[in-house]
Nucleic acid binder design. Structure first.
Lengths: 337, 337
DNA sequence: TTGAAAGCGCTAACAG
DNA sequence: CTGTTAGCGCTTTCAA
């Protein structure tokens, strides 16, 4: 039981050479049918399973992909992972998954591990697109690396959500409701989602002829504690915003708790837009206006892109952008009501 | 770039033998300090990463664990996975993750893959504890297998949530509010959570001297579509239940949608208890009474249990049971109000 | 069509 | 303290 059967055991039991057994296992045609059947019968009877480790040693390919995300318990990443796994496992790939917790050191270490394990490809986020060490480390990978919702200056495969357009739509909608002082909480300028959201926000204000109040923009971190602090400081402003866009993915629960604690009602006291959809946003009361986009779809695209890269096909488009649409719900009210 | 450096390259560049390079890499003490430094310098300069595949071939251990769950995009499983990954990666283990979708065929195939990849251990759910093929296949694994929330008759390591006690508490609470006709929707008798919930439910009724109306128990599947059908048929009953326990983890959104569609208000038209906590249950309106338990905690326990098993320590307790508590919220009202 | 043998990159046992 | 060498289980030439 322990240790497992080897191809030698199969060959021995079938009375053939190791080479012949290997040819049967790999479906080569130039094997006598009777021998083929004999070998396969032995395989079934002793429960032989080829050692992929040994196979990988020869082939150099492991049929393994590493997926590195901030935290796989975040619903959006979980969905991405799920879709990715579905597509890749159908092609015989297995998936290593690990959490970076947005820690550059850990990120480096996980890239080391991925390389040591000789994965065939990597799909990842990064804590900081402008960190030289991280950029260099990615470039030093000898397999395809696909970035998820990151848009660094250097050349690299990437999958993006069009956060800028999404936030622009949301901001425009709030402006059309009469809001002029709109708060924004999101990630910092070192990651694409943070930059893109600030960009879309500023664009909408500019086009409406409104000036940007910099103190209303809190682009610091995806961390829940940070966001909490941002929220509180926004609400404590002399000229408190009448509407709020939470550009981070899974911050809605924390924000709702804080607003409830402060006794602020949505939307009568403050209008609210969440950066991504969720059960809570859809079915809560009030229902929360959201930006809607799908990491699940990106998971499928990521698989396609990666498989193409692994098969040596030239990346037709190395920069895939997925839409973000605005879904108005009852968490936004006209200004002054 | 392609192919990667080998230990031979390091040895050559450092002017030492392969054996010496290996000793340095593995931190053996019997190496001259100056040689050690020279080798490490080369390692850094050429970016050498040991090939774990090759290392595994010799050691027979891969430092790899397979985690097979129904679907990793289900929040509870995602949390389990996250906790597990945290604990295991700290010990140098990597995690293969795959979804079984409660498909026995796929489950078998994934166990094959796990074995082919020579994982050191497996943590999994199973679609059916009483399926002989699945049971045999697990027994044929030559590494430790830990079951998550499954309690099959055969001997095996397992981590369980005490769903029975949890549901009993919830049922008792509803009974104390005057409810006599309480609907229950959960998984079937081939999986532990389904059985345990029905058990707890029946126990509470029996102790209260109430008789069980079998048509109020829908223990069929964790599938959302099935549950939806169960819900509708429960609501169409002549003598419709005045309270409902949804014993499946992530069914709350679907149930709330259906109730809204049918124009039923919670709790005035029907009282509701959800089988697990969530943002929606906690922050929605009304807030939903729930059974509260943590797969995240089980993830940590699973890691501990597995590491012990891998180190050959005798499993002190092979059956870990984690509590489920009842959190009453505003989704339950006295009968008749 | 089949068998024998080299070698994938590494570790560990054995010499020196 | 260091070098040499035998495999780990498999695939794949190369001969037969």
């Amino acid at each position: 039981m322990a240790g497992g059967k080897k191809i030698r055991d199969v060959a021995l039991a079938a009375g053939v050479s190791i080479g012949t057994a290997s040819r049967v296992l790999n479906g080569h045609t130039n094997v006598a049918p009777e021998i083929r059947d004999r070998v396969l019968a032995i395989v079934n009877s002793i429960g032989y399973r080829p050692n992929i480790i040994a196979r990988s040693m020869r082939s150099g390919r492991t049929k393994t992909i590493a997926v590195l995300v901030r935290d796989m318990s975040i619903p959006l990443f979980a969905e991405f992972l799920s879709a990715l796994e579905g597509s890749l496992s159908a092609q015989g790939y297995s998936i290593f998954v690990a959490a970076t917790h947005d820690d550059p050191e850990l990120e480096l270490k996980l890239l080391d591990t991925a390389q040591e394990r000789r994965v065939d490809g990597v799909i990842m986020t990064t804590a900081n697109e402008h960190d030289t060490a991280l950029t260099k480390r990615r470039a030093a990978m000898d397999v395809p690396v696909i970035l998820l919702d990151r848009d660094p200056p250097e050349d690299s495969l990437r999958l993006l959500v069009d956060h800028s357009s999404g936030i622009k739509l949301a901001t425009e909608s709030l402006i059309s409701l009469g809001h002029k002082d709109i708060g924004l909480i999101t990630g910092n300028e070192h990651v694409y989602p943070g930059r893109a959201r600030v960009e879309g926000y500023c664009l909408a204000l500019a086009e409406a002829g409104l000036s940007v109040r910099p103190e209303l923009i809190h682009a610091h971190s995806f961390d829940a504690a940070h966001a909490q602090a941002s929220l509180v400081s926004l609400l404590e402003l002399q000229n408190r915003p009448s509407a709020l866009i939470i550009g981070s993915s899974s911050l809605l629960p924390a924000v709702l708790r804080t607003l409830a604690r402060l006794g602020l009602k949505v939307p009568s006291d403050i209008s609210l837009v969440a950066g991504s959809d969720s059960d809570l946003a859809e079915l809560g009361n009030p229902q929360i206006s959201v930006l809607q986009w799908s990491y699940r779809d990106l998971g499928t695209v990521a698989a396609t892109l990666l498989l193409a890269a692994l098969n040596g096909e030239p990346a037709a488009l190395s920069r895939h952008v997925s839409p973000s649409t605005y879904i108005p719900r009852s968490s936004c009210a006209p200004f002054g009501t």
